Each structure stands twice: as C-alpha cells, then as structure tokens.
Amino acid sequence: MSKNGTKISLNTWGASFRLSDLSSTREHSFTLEPDAAQMKSLREDLGLLGLKKLRFEGSFIPASKHDWQLKAKLGATVSQACVATLEPVTTRVDVIVERLYTSDFNDPALATAENESEIEVPKDDTVEPIPVSLTLLDVASEALVLALPDYPRASDAELPETLFTQQGTDAMTDEDTKPFASLKSLRDKLEKGD
C-alpha cells in the first residue's frame, strides 16, 4: 500500500510507479516475467532475432527517508545476428543491476562550465536522481541492452580475405603486413637471383 492507501504493484510488466509512494520503513521486492506478447514487443523494440527466458527480480531498499537502492538480477537468452555471417548467435545474459535513486543528485552535465571539456563524467553511473515515475520495464531494457555483445559473432564465422590492387601489381596480403615481411620479400628476391 502507498502512503495514500492505493496498492502499488511492482510485479506488473510495464507499470509505472512513484518511489515516494513506497513505504520507506521496509524493503519492496518484485519479480517481472513478461508474457509472450510482451516478450515479442520487447524483442522487436530492441531489434533482436530472439528473446526468451527473461526474468527481472530484485528489491527496492530504503537508503534514507527519500532515497532508494535498487538491487536486482536480470536474466535472459537472446539471439542476435552474427556481424560476419548474419546467422543467429545465442547469448545467455545474467547481470546484476544496481541503482541508487537519490534526492541529492548533482548532474555534472547540468553544471555551468565555461568550456564543455571541463564537464566531468561521474565515476559512479549507478547513481541517478529520483524520477517522477519509474517503470521497471525501462530499467530492465536498459540493463539488457548494456549487457548484449556489441559485435556478436558465430564461433565458426570467418570473413573471407578480399584483395584489392592496381592492375599489373600484386595485392598486399595480411602476411605482407607482418613484421619482417619486407625482409622475407628481400630474401626471396635474393634467392631468385642466385
């Protein structure tokens, strides 16, 4: 129940709530598991080939009278296109998600600086201002996107070697770019001269 008597459900996929409506005298646990339609929508939003076994569970723990610590675990199995072959690559994602929602947040990007190069990037990216409302779906989606491989690659994927050169000359190969390749070439020319 919230302070004003309305029930707050943290276990509803996509529902928004206000942290200020949670009782600051106890921990609030949640478990989110989307149904097939919600899973399909999220898969399409994230541009994934496949998404299954998604579970986001954790707790909001009072950090002070107004601040909240989120400690959660996100698990999912995703399929992405291989960057080399476009074949599906399946990855299991299991990540810990931690956030501190605080009323004392000072955003360095909003600080007045004469030069943009003076703006400092915060060292702790888990600290955020208390939002007007929070949607756990957004937190789970962000954590999932950050955990995905940037360049998924199938274990047997190999890029074919492509050679480009001017007409009448030999193409430079990967072997030629290795250290001592020019010495090898010189040795080969000297041996042909014998």
Rank of each mutant, 00 (worst) to 15 (best):
M1V: 09
S2E: 01
K3I: 05
K3H: 14
K3G: 13
G5Y: 05
T6N: 11
I8M: 10
S9L: 03
L10I: 08
T12N: 13
W13T: 08
G14V: 07
F17V: 00
R18I: 01
S20H: 06
S20V: 10
S20R: 14
L22H: 04
L22R: 02
T25G: 08
T25M: 11
T25L: 13
R26L: 08
E27L: 13
L32R: 00
L32Q: 04
A36Y: 07
A36F: 06
A37P: 03
Q38M: 04
M39Q: 12
L42G: 06
L42E: 06
R43C: 15
R43S: 01
R43E: 14
L48M: 08
L49C: 11
G50L: 11
L51N: 00
K52L: 09
K53D: 15
K53L: 10
K53M: 09
L54G: 08
L54D: 02
R55H: 11
F56V: 07
E57N: 12
G58I: 05
I61V: 14
S64E: 09
K65I: 07
K65Y: 13
W68L: 08
Q69S: 11
Q69H: 14
L70N: 02
L70S: 10
L74T: 02
L74F: 08
L74H: 10
A76K: 01
A76N: 03
T77M: 02
V78H: 00
Q80F: 01
A81E: 14
A81H: 07
C82W: 07
V83A: 15
A84F: 15
T85I: 01
L86K: 06
P88L: 02
V89K: 01
T91Y: 12
R92L: 13
V93F: 14
V93S: 06
V93N: 14
D94E: 15
D94F: 09
D94V: 03
V97Q: 01
V97P: 00
E98V: 09
L100E: 01
D107T: 04
A111R: 05
N115V: 06
E116L: 15
S117L: 14
I119S: 06
I119P: 05
E120Y: 05
E120N: 10
V121S: 10
V121W: 05
P122I: 13
D124S: 06
D125C: 09
T126R: 13
E128L: 05
P129G: 05
I130M: 12
I130V: 12
V132W: 12
S133A: 13
D138E: 14
A140C: 12
E142W: 02
E142R: 06
A143H: 03
V145N: 08
L146S: 07
L148W: 00
L148I: 01
D150R: 07
A154E: 12
P160H: 11
P160N: 13
E161I: 09
T162E: 14
T162W: 11
T162P: 03
L163A: 11
L163T: 02
T165Q: 14
Q166C: 09
Q166P: 04
T169L: 14
A171H: 13
A171E: 09
T177C: 01
K178D: 00
P179Y: 00
F180C: 03
A181W: 05
A181N: 00
A181L: 03
L183R: 00
L183M: 09
K184G: 04
S185K: 12
D188W: 04
D188S: 12
K189I: 11
L190D: 07
L190P: 01
L190W: 10
K192M: 06
G193I: 02
D194M: 06
